[in-house]
Design a protein around this nucleic acid. Structure first.
Length: 220
DNA sequence: CCAGACGTTGTT
DNA sequence: GTCTGG
DNA sequence: CCAGACGTTGTT
DNA sequence: GTCTGG
């Protein structure tokens, strides 16, 4: 789940995440794997939050190359503390990936019909994420991230078994703080409340990753 | 000991 | 069918 | 996630 | 990097 999302309403991004600025100037209606995403983290000196662009699709720091092996866009909460690629990042490189909605598909008569899920009352989603740096002697460091998934809630269940872990704003600091104990951080990974998200049928325009227009998030 | 795998989703 | 790129 | 490409030999 | 299988 969550292999496509949107970040279109930039007006309040900075205030929603206590950022002085965000590395995004253009709205994004159709964010797909391998593309650049905004990642919110704690500044190294601990003085609040910062936003950094990263590539969506996790590459562990020990990978032989970024193209050797899969680049998962999701990490299962159930196994994130023990899986080899993810466990170090879960301990010390947690982040929040802002969105204003995400997409799922239903297969209807062999066609993929997309739906947009977003907060019923508007505002942002903060996906729980993890990140890592991959480096080689001859290239720039590659920053990558993945979105943590949990079981679907009642809203998602007809569409998919999994959903992104959506943090409540009150938990942002604890999630980002590398000093937060792993079991405490893990307790923050829960399905959203059943009444939190609304479902909106949208145009198949979103199916093509190259389509990055408001049509992708407009209700049919 | 070294060599090789390590991750996700969906679909069947 | 399966892998890669977006 | 979906969309799109995927291969060879020989010859230029 | 670290763990598993041979």
């Amino acid at each position: 789940m969550c292999a496509r999302f949107t970040l279109s309403d930039l007006e309040d991004l900075a205030t929603a995440f206590s950022l002085l600025s965000a590395p995004v100037l253009e709205p994004r209606y159709n964010i797909a794997p391998s593309q650049r995403v905004v990642v919110v983290g704690r500044k190294p000196d601990g003085s609040g939050r910062g936003a950094v662009p990263m590539s969506w699709g996790f590459v562990p720091h020990w990978a032989k190359s970024p193209t050797d092996g899969p680049r998962p866009v999701n990490a299962r909460a159930e196994t994130i503390q023990t899986s080899a690629p993810f466990r170090d990042s879960f301990r010390s490189r947690r982040c929040i990936i802002p969105a204003d909605g995400f997409f799922e598909w239903l297969k209807v008569e062999r066609k993929k019909v997309p739906y947009l899920f977003r907060p019923r009352d508007g505002g942002y989603l903060g996906f729980a994420g993890i990140w890592d740096i991959w480096q080689s002697p001859t290239t720039e460091p590659l920053y990558t991230c993945a979105i943590v998934t949990v079981c679907a809630n009642a809203t998602l269940r007809p569409y998919h078994e999994r959903m992104p872990a959506i943090l409540s704003p009150a938990d942002y600091d604890a999630w980002l703080d590398a000093k937060t104990p792993a079991h405490t951080a893990h307790d923050l990974l829960r399905p959203a409340a059943d009444d939190f998200l609304q479902v909106i049928a949208v145009s198949p325009a979103v199916n093509r990753a190259a389509n990055n227009t408001p049509e992708c998030i407009a209700a049919l």
